[in-house]
Simulated scan of single mutants.
Amino acid sequence: MNRAPHADPRENLHKPPPYDGRVPNVTRADVAQAVRNPLAYIAERWTPSQRMLQRAILASLVMNVVIVGTGGAVRLTGSGLGCPTWPKCTDDSLTATAEMGFHGVIEFGNRLLTYVLCAAVGWAIIAARSTKPHRRSVTRLGWVQFWLVMGNAVLGGIVVLVGLNPYTVAAHFLLSTTLITVATVMWQRAREGDGAPRPLVGKSVRQLVWFLTVAAALLVAVGTVVTGAGPHAGDSSEVHRIPLNWEDVSRLHAVLAWVVVSLTFALWFVLKAVDAPPGPLRRTRDLFLVLLAQGLIGYVQYFTDLPEILVGAHMLGSCLVWIAIVRVMLALRERPELEVSVPAQGEAQLTSAR
Results as ranks from 00 to 15, higher is better:
180 I>V: 15
105 V>H: 03
322 W>P: 07
298 G>A: 03
344 A>Y: 06
89 C>Q: 13
259 V>T: 14
70 T>P: 06
156 G>N: 11
252 L>K: 06
333 R>I: 00
138 V>T: 12
184 T>W: 02
29 A>E: 14
293 A>M: 06
117 L>K: 02
297 I>P: 00
194 D>T: 03
25 N>C: 02
339 E>H: 13
301 Q>K: 11
125 I>V: 13
117 L>V: 08
130 S>P: 01
108 F>M: 07
73 A>T: 12
335 R>T: 13
306 L>K: 12
57 I>S: 08
154 V>P: 05
250 S>C: 06
81 L>I: 05
17 P>C: 06
260 V>I: 03
127 A>Q: 05
168 T>F: 15
118 C>Y: 07
278 P>E: 07
231 P>G: 12
72 G>R: 03
210 W>D: 04
182 V>W: 07
197 P>M: 06
214 V>G: 05
333 R>A: 14
89 C>N: 11
72 G>D: 04
152 N>Y: 06
200 L>F: 02
93 S>M: 09
5 P>E: 14
205 V>N: 00
165 N>K: 12
66 V>R: 02
228 G>S: 09
139 T>G: 05
90 T>P: 13
136 R>Y: 03
109 G>S: 11
302 Y>N: 01
344 A>F: 10
193 G>T: 06
47 T>C: 10
251 R>Q: 12
310 L>T: 04
121 V>Y: 05
147 W>F: 15
293 A>G: 09
127 A>W: 03
192 E>Q: 15
311 V>K: 09
326 V>L: 08
155 L>F: 11
238 E>S: 12
337 E>D: 15
148 L>H: 07
245 N>H: 14
57 I>P: 01
256 L>G: 12
86 W>A: 08
98 A>C: 00
244 L>T: 09
70 T>N: 07
18 P>R: 15
182 V>M: 11
284 T>D: 01
273 A>H: 04
260 V>G: 05
198 R>C: 00
240 H>W: 12
316 L>A: 15
45 R>L: 11
213 T>L: 09
224 T>L: 04
102 F>E: 10
208 L>M: 14
206 R>Y: 01
350 L>D: 09
74 V>T: 10
24 P>C: 08
321 V>C: 11
341 S>P: 10
277 P>N: 02
